[in-house]
Simulated assay, not measured.
Amino acid sequence: MMQLALAALLALPIPLPDSTPPSHAQVLEIPPELRAQLHQRVPGSVAPGARRLELLVEFVFSADGLALEYGNSTTHTVADAWRTRQVNCLSFALLFTGLAREVGLDAYVQEIDQVLAWHQQGGIVYNSSHVNVGVRFGQRRKTVDVSRAEVMARHRPEQVADERALAHFYNNRGAELMAAGDSVAARRHMEEAIALDPRYATSWNNLGVLRMRSDDAIGAEAAYREALALDPTHASALFNIVGLFRRAGDEANAMHFQRRLERAQLADPFHQFLLGTQYEGRGEYERAVEHYRRAIRLHGDEHRFHFALARTWLLMGERRRAGRALARARELGDDDSRALYQAKLDRLRQDR
């Protein structure tokens, strides 16, 4: 979980994270015990760099190493991630990048801005982007991703500056504190995120949600508009500003931004995919096919889109079409999914 883009709903209390903003150094500090373990498992004399990376990955993930566990957990500092062994993608990226640099690797945080990863907690909808780690060896690059194949992404990851990575930390912490009901600490974290990277639209959107929840509609509108000036298709900011104007009874402005939101959603393959799953779940298969096919037109390389289409064709009794979609899913899938799709395709052919 990272780059949390919030959509305002009713607030429910959840456990309160630490409310004191850590310094930049505290966020990235590698505890002495962890540093000692690292150099024991990944000695600096090991060459070339690719071998050091292999040893580092083994140390981070193996049962006799850090044995990190991935999930939508609290955004931790490097030290807290080491102590708890619990990481979301941002905590992992900060920890792994720091350890990689400690053993002489050219590592950096990478950002994937459009992914299908969202959840609801504490009365707030979180629309999450994703980060992982890149490691450079001359002209070659390797990617280390704690989520494995769980994240559905539209674009390849891009390197971001350390300031952006730190801004994500404070932005995430701010969102977590807001959901926990500590608006003062949340504001301090969000303002730190904006100070580090004022051109990141999601931080402005989240500040708008905080202001709205603090009954500052004027401040919320200003923050949403700043987010949209930076990213005119930012779906969360559009959703939030529509709600703001609707609550104020300003239907003209609400409709203006609603049309902008609908245009953004039409161009978003993940939104179309989610609509398809909703219609499929309700048994409205023709509508589901319509949205799955639109998702594929927008982002045809995602194997799970083709598999969803195949599943819906099969529910409609369209076995030939289902077979074609399933074959395409198999072509595009990774090693794990390809075997599953092949087995389903074989079964479909046998049934014929």
Rank of each mutant, 00 (worst) to 15 (best):
M2D: 14
Q3T: 02
A8Y: 06
L12A: 12
P15T: 08
S19F: 01
T20L: 04
P22R: 08
P22H: 12
S23V: 01
H24E: 04
P31Q: 08
E33W: 06
A36H: 05
Q40W: 07
V46Q: 08
P48T: 13
R52N: 07
E54W: 01
A63G: 04
A63N: 15
D64Q: 14
G65Q: 08
G65K: 10
Y70R: 07
T77Q: 10
V78L: 14
V78G: 07
A79F: 04
Q86P: 07
V87K: 08
F92Q: 08
A93K: 14
L95R: 08
L95H: 05
G98K: 07
L99P: 00
A100L: 13
G104Y: 04
L105D: 13
A107M: 11
D113G: 04
A117K: 11
A117C: 12
A117M: 13
H119S: 01
Q120E: 13
G123I: 10
S128D: 12
V133I: 12
R136L: 15
S147W: 02
S147D: 10
V160Y: 09
A161L: 10
N171H: 12
R173S: 05
G174H: 08
G174L: 05
E176A: 15
A180P: 02
A185S: 14
H189N: 15
H189T: 07
M190N: 01
E192K: 15
A195V: 09
A195G: 05
W204I: 01
N205V: 03
L207W: 09
G208C: 14
S214K: 01
A220E: 10
Y224L: 13
E226G: 02
E226R: 14
S236C: 07
A237R: 06
V242E: 10
G243I: 07
A248L: 15
G249E: 08
A252Y: 06
F257C: 05
G276S: 03
G276W: 00
E280L: 06
R282K: 11
G283A: 03
E286M: 03
R293W: 00
R294V: 07
A295F: 02
A295G: 01
I296W: 00
I296T: 03
I296E: 05
R304K: 13
F305V: 10
F305E: 03
A308H: 05
T312Q: 09
W313H: 15
L315W: 04
A322M: 09
G323Y: 04
G323M: 13
L326V: 08
S337H: 12
Y341L: 11
A343D: 15
K344C: 00
